[in-house]
């Protein structure tokens, strides 16, 4: 159940690592966009073969991120503003595509989320993606992203391909967002134009909780995974108490509080070192 959150947190990680205060605020709406367009455009038109679907979601995620990266690098607008407008744009578009939760996921996906056993296809998918992350984090390419994020001026002056690293970080983010969207679609079995947005904040919270600095250059995917699992567990524990109608609010309250607190702790620790 925590799969979409873990994947979304991993999606934000390379962009934050690449520095410049870049945080992808649009990760949630992008997830939602892939979810609703998958349900609306592909399934309803019977283009629902697994290959077709996977090709589509990855292409959508990657293309969007390439556009965002190009604006950040060449127009030199602060990344946070760019992704903020992306958030606004996509959350509007999502509602245009699908005005309320409806539709069905591709047939072959339907039984994925319904299984009670932990060993569902979503779980295997998650393991594959985490494997991919571990591979990615050992590549020289990942190192170039971290170098760029840790000190962009140093990296530039020493001939690191910073534009390439930044584009790459966004592309990887696009792939992980696509995976998160697939997992999300499998879990809810339909399309939902608004729920995706909530992933922005929880993914960032997971990342910060995992010890990645929003200033870039330090941290990593493992922390984000643990952070996401933590948030999921907190939510889960909270939901076992019977808060009745307010349980959703308790979640909101705790997510917000955890985010602010972990930011504070992070900054205090950085200052002490």
């Amino acid at each position: 159940m925590a799969a979409p959150l873990i994947l979304a947190a991993l999606a934000v990680t390379p962009i934050v690592l690449a520095g410049r205060g870049g945080v992808d605020l649009s990760v949630g709406p992008l997830l939602g966009f892939i979810n609703v367009t998958l349900v609306k455009w592909l399934v309803e038109n019977d283009y629902a073969s697994p290959i077709m679907v996977i090709a589509y979601v990855v292409a959508a995620g990657v293309l969007y991120q390439i556009v965002i990266a190009a604006i950040i690098i060449y127009v030199r607008v602060a990344p946070i503003i760019v992704t903020l407008s992306g958030y606004l744009f996509l959350s509007g578009i999502n509602l245009v595509v699908l005005d309320r939760p409806s539709g069905v996921a591709p047939d072959w996906m339907l039984d994925w989320g319904s299984g009670i056993s932990i060993l569902s296809p979503v779980f295997y998918g998650l393991i594959i993606m985490i494997g991919f992350w571990i591979f990615f984090s050992r590549t020289v390419f990942y190192q170039q992203i971290v170098l760029t994020g840790a000190n962009e001026r140093m990296a530039f002056a020493n001939g690191v391909n910073i534009a390439g690293a930044r584009f790459g970080a966004h592309i990887v983010a696009g792939v992980f967002t696509a995976a998160a969207a697939l997992a999300y679609t499998a879990l809810i079995g339909s399309g939902d134009p608004t729920q995706g947005n909530t992933y922005t904040l929880s993914a960032i919270t997971a990342l910060v909780l995992g010890g990645t600095s929003l200033a870039g250059g330090t941290g990593g995917g493992l922390g984000s995974i643990l952070g996401a699992i933590n948030i999921y567990l907190i939510t889960y524990v909270l939901s076992t108490y019977n808060f009745g109608t307010v349980s959703g609010f308790v979640t909101q309250l705790s997510t917000g509080a955890i985010l602010v607190l972990s930011l504070l702790v992070n900054s205090l620790m950085n200052r002490r070192q």
């Binding site: 020289v140 390419f141 170039q144 170098l147 000190n151 140093m154 990296a155 391909n161 790459g168």
Partner: peptide, 29 residues
């Protein structure tokens, strides 16, 4: 190769990462 007036290092990274900054291309170590 240039050694700048300002001591340009990435403070949060390790010595080895700093020394080898720029030696690798995006894809090849």
């Amino acid at each position: 190769a240039m050694i700048f007036q300002e001591v340009l290092v990435a403070e949060t990274l390790s010595v080895v990462d700093n020394i080898f900054a720029g030696t690798d291309s995006l894809w090849k170590r």
